[in-house]
Design a protein around this nucleic acid. Structure first.
Lengths: 107, 107
DNA sequence: ATAACATTTTAAGAATCATTTAACAATTGA
DNA sequence: TCAATTGTTAAATGATTCTTAAAATGTTAT
């Protein structure tokens, strides 16, 4: 189970319009990911601001990066998001199945 | 599907140690919820600060409240969290099942 | 080497957020 | 009614965050 501080960091990383949009683009792009510049262009964000947001997402463990030539490719890492959801729904509904409103969760 | 701004608001509401702890207590407490004072005592948070955080969680749609005598009971509302998770995982892995790493999600 | 390209770093300013204190409602019981 | 209990609101302060601009790093092509 993730530690609270790490969950907070992941939630905070996603709680920003630009970063949320970045993350969703990467989620939809699969393991190959996208180059920083492609995302910047698509979202109309300056390179410097892009880097700032990537650092936050990286530091939270939500994305990884690899360098390919002069491009840097970013890709979503689902481990942290899965952990985040598990943390939020842990022990949900006090163990009462009948009452549980979380799909894919057996309370 | 939720609007981005609402998702950001929900994520931001949970991206704070005290509020995350509050929410988890409520998730585990089921539909009956807990009185504000019980949570404040358990988490060692001042009433004023507690109210501040409740307002944030309420405004994000993550919790609801009802008055019972002189107590105010708060309870988790799972709709927004489910919507949040759906939003994050929408179109995940570019539709490639084999690669998907999200349990309970059929890409 | 030199220039062009892709991204990161640094520094600065404005905006937002969390916490505390004190004062304010609302409900119950004497 | 009066006092005690429960919780909210408002104002003030300190800390964090977002954005921009400028300079710097690393990579490729000429």
């Amino acid at each position: 189970m993730m530690k609270p501080a790490q969950v907070v960091k992941a939630l905070a990383a996603l709680a920003q319009p630009t970063r949320l949009a970045i993350y969703r683009l990467l989620v939809a792009s699969g393991p190959e990911g996208l180059a920083a510049g492609q995302i910047a262009e698509k979202l109309k964000v300056s390179p410097a601001n892009m880097s700032f947001h990537f650092k936050t997402l990286s530091h939270a463990g939500l994305v990884g990066s690899r360098q390919d030539g002069r491009f840097v490719y970013y890709a979503a890492n689902f481990t942290v998001m899965n952990g985040m959801v598990d943390y939020l729904t842990e022990n949900c509904c006090g163990g009462n199945d009948a009452v549980c409103k979380i799909p894919s969760k057996k309370c």
